[in-house]
Amino acid sequence: MILDDALRLAGRTVARAVTRPPRYDLEGRVVFITGAARGLGAATARRAHVRGARVALVGRRLAPLQELAAELGSGAAAFEADVTSAEQLQQAATDAVATFGGIDVVIANAGIAPPSHTVATIDTDAFERTVDVDLLGQWRTVRATLPAVLESRGHILLVGSIYAFFNGVLAAPYAVSKAGVEQLARTLRVELASHGATAGIAYLGFIDTDLAADAFADASAQAIRQAVPRVFTREMTVTAAADAMLDAIERRAPQVSAPAWVRPLLAFRSVTTAVMDDVLLHNRNVQTAISDAEVAARQPES
Rank of each mutant, 00 (worst) to 15 (best):
R251S: 07
P300S: 00
P259S: 01
L204R: 06
I290F: 11
V238L: 07
I290K: 05
Q222A: 00
Q226G: 05
Q287K: 14
Q287I: 13
T272C: 12
A227F: 10
G200T: 02
H195I: 00
F216D: 08
V231G: 03
A241G: 09
N285W: 02
W261M: 03
A296M: 06
I201N: 12
R230Q: 13
T273D: 04
A221T: 00
R269Y: 06
A244I: 02
P264Q: 04
A221P: 11
V286D: 08
A219Y: 01
R230P: 03
T288P: 03
R251H: 14
T209K: 04
S220C: 00
R225N: 07
E250N: 10
L211M: 14
A267W: 07
H195L: 02
A199L: 08
R298W: 01
V279W: 14
V295I: 13
P259M: 03
A289F: 09
N285F: 03
L265T: 09
A241E: 04
T233L: 13
F206L: 15
D278P: 11
I249G: 07
I207K: 11
L280V: 10
M236I: 12
V295D: 11
R263C: 00
A221M: 10
R225T: 09
A202Q: 01
T233F: 13
I207D: 06
L281H: 14
Y203V: 01
Q222W: 02
D292N: 12
A274G: 13
T233S: 15
A223I: 02
D214Y: 10
A267F: 02
A260V: 00
E294D: 15
H282D: 06
V228D: 13
E235V: 07
A296C: 03
A223Q: 07
A217R: 10
L204S: 12
V262T: 03
H282E: 00
D210Q: 14
R263L: 03
Q222H: 05
D210H: 11
S270N: 10
F268C: 09
A260L: 07
G205V: 05
Q299C: 00
T272N: 10
L266A: 09
Q222C: 09
A296R: 09
D278E: 15
L246S: 04
A213E: 12
A241P: 12
R234L: 10
V295R: 15
D292K: 06
M236C: 02
L281C: 12
L281M: 12
A221S: 15
A241Y: 05
D218Y: 02
V271I: 12
L246I: 12
V262C: 03
D210L: 07
P300E: 01
A242N: 08
D218C: 05
R230E: 15
